[in-house]
Design a protein around this nucleic acid. Sequence first.
DNA 1: TTGTACGCGTTATCAG
DNA 2: CTGATAACGCGTACAA
Lengths: 342, 342
Amino acid sequence: MRKKKNTLTITQVAQEAGVSVQTVSRVMNNYEYVADGTRQHVQEVIKRLGYRPSGIARSLASRRSYTLGLVTSDLSDPFFALVAAGAEVEASRNNYFCILSSTERNLDDEARYVRMLTERFVEGIFLARPSTIYDDDHLAELIANGLPVVTTAYHLPASNLMVVDVDNVEGGYQAVAHLTRLGHRDIAMITGPMAYKSARDRLEGYCKALAEHSILYEEARVVVTDGWHYEDGYNAMNRLLLQPVSFTALFAQSDEMAIGAIRALKEAGKHVPADVSVIGYNDLDVSTYYDPPLTTIFQPKREIGVLGVQLLIQAIEHPGSVKGEFLLKTHLVERESCRRLE
Amino acid sequence: MRKKKNTLTITQVAQEAGVSVQTVSRVMNNYEYVADGTRQHVQEVIKRLGYRPSGIARSLASRRSYTLGLVTSDLSDPFFALVAAGAEVEASRNNYFCILSSTERNLDDEARYVRMLTERFVEGIFLARPSTIYDDDHLAELIANGLPVVTTAYHLPASNLMVVDVDNVEGGYQAVAHLTRLGHRDIAMITGPMAYKSARDRLEGYCKALAEHSILYEEARVVVTDGWHYEDGYNAMNRLLLQPVSFTALFAQSDEMAIGAIRALKEAGKHVPADVSVIGYNDLDVSTYYDPPLTTIFQPKREIGVLGVQLLIQAIEHPGSVKGEFLLKTHLVERESCRRLE
DNA sequence: TTGTACGCGTTATCAG
DNA sequence: CTGATAACGCGTACAA
């Protein structure tokens, strides 16, 4: 469909104001070297006519789009929703736009999206999604292409690839160290799928904390799930209860899984924290109001989005000035789901 | 910063292929009237050179951007996060892009965003946010301007303004009717702020259900909150417990508030549903795993996003072909937080 | 079926 | 300080 559009162009403003288009352009862009009188007059005409420049024409001429691609795996995951929220706010604060692309369905889509985004106007891409094993040819292609890319949970040496994430090794360590501090030694764990870097990192933190206290790693105490959700934690706990091992504490790698696990424990007649102490990971809103209020590891979610966009913009406006990996710190949030072992 | 960019233009492809730019353009856009041989040859050259057209130049020439503005109040609200997710997926399915704008901080921002969006490339705007009382001059301006607009929870007669939302009157009715069906007559309610249309609509549904059973509306049984969150429900329940009224059931206008209220009830030594039956609204993921599992009213969240974008695209591609209000239906999800009154 | 020439609305260049 | 004029990269009548 052919849009008639508000065909009010810079040329008409120039005519109406009796100046050249260039002068109008200069006024629009707050250039120096334009007489105060001229400026005011032009501004007045712009206002009177209600002139709005075309961002597209502007982009074409200036070769700048001020647009970022925000590729997120799934907004239904509160973690990524908050990362996205942080990213958008920071972008907007810097007068950038965010084009949203969720790759919910399958990761092959990501390649398609990224291609469409670059065909379009994007000056940089923020990949906010968990890292699993997947085809990253398109990522390599982008990077080779020189487009600044910020990603969570990934590794690939390249000058214009930046990683921003949570320090999950440290986070896992904090969780388990808290448990050991409370006197626990038989500590079970429900992990996310091993395809996820975050799951492997938290596992590493778990092992590190155990090692520090000379606690043997007991495979039967660790259950790997297919996902990170309530039902995964619920099912995992039911499996765990079948194992011929005892445990006085549980580290669930997500608050969702912690809650699912607690539900399974309750159904099995076990009390939290009386019989089993449970610590989660992420710090959801609901965790404060769960029964019992969930002790957990807080992750700075919005901050990831904010920092990611800051890095991206920095890389766009000053190529080569930033690179590397940026890990944000987690911290313990004590509530009532863990107790000291007498 | 001046980007060198992949200055691989259609002209170069044309030269390389020994044809005119127009032929390349025709091939790119799958036009008819191109000899098969020519088409294949051009396609081969395009592939070999790795040519990607510039979306910006394309937009400028064709006056189409295939971009939608997605204005959402706050991605940290799971409701709107899911609406946004649905919207994005549907947009992408139709080869449209979504520019994300969250107006988290204050509603004045919305005007600014909307202005920036239109200055830019947006062909339509989807306002996915609760309706409160706010300055809607910019909305009226947009509509007057002829830009298709879809919004949730709002009313304004205009040919190119479409509303897509949940039928909250019916939803509120379903919740309370369920309670009366179980024999309850003393039904308390915790509502969201009255500035929200959704809160007022659910209140209307509440009143309707009461009226049907000749139950008197008792003001002391209704608590209005400042928000929709866990703590609001928690505080509201504590206030309610101070009132000189009894109640055997509670309708909380959001699952978050229901959960907060249950927590307050527990702290007050009351059991759910033994002492008080509680029904929520929305059906969060966590509600299934709460203790007790929460009976609630399900809202089709993603569907709102999907439908909103469908309407928007329809309005863009066939102006005037759609208009009006589209209300999606809620339904009851029975779990364990309500019991039959003996 | 293919090519030419112009337009889209703005910024950049370079004189003046 | 200001103004022509040339890009920017592609779509589109119109002509061939």
